[in-house]
């Protein structure tokens, strides 16, 4: 397994095991994660996990805002491009 020191992935909590341990899933892979650094973890939360520890909760509202912004940028520029190069059909 390739280990990268500062890389971390967002995983979804699927089971609360007590004593600051959770099971978390991404793409069908389940791993046991220490949640000792996170307050009040709930089922369905997304955590950013690094070397077996959740280092922060992934803020789903903020993630969606960023994705909406990306979609708007792409749509806006595509419209601008079509205005410059109208399709002849």
């Amino acid at each position: 397994m390739v280990f990268s020191m500062c890389l971390a992935v967002p995983v979804r909590v699927i089971a609360l095991l007590g004593q600051d341990w959770v099971d978390a899933e991404i793409g069908g892979v389940v791993s046991r994660v220490s949640s000792v650094m996170i307050d009040n973890v709930s089922l369905g939360d997304y955590l950013i996990v690094h070397a077996g520890f959740a280092i922060t909760r992934l803020d789903v509202v903020e993630a969606e805002k960023t994705l909406v912004l990306f979609a708007e940028i792409a749509a806006h520029l595509q419209r601008a491009e079509h205005a410059l190069h109208p399709r002849v059909s």
């Binding site: 992935v9 967002p10 991404i26 994705l67 990306f70 940028i73 792409a74």
Partner: peptide
């Protein structure tokens, strides 16, 4: 996976590059 793939989209990358 939405919170990984969503941040790797090629069309958005092209638009950001244009910006």
């Amino acid at each position: 996976m939405r919170y990984i793939r969503g941040f790797r989209d090629g069309d958005v990358a092209a638009s950001l590059a244009q910006l």
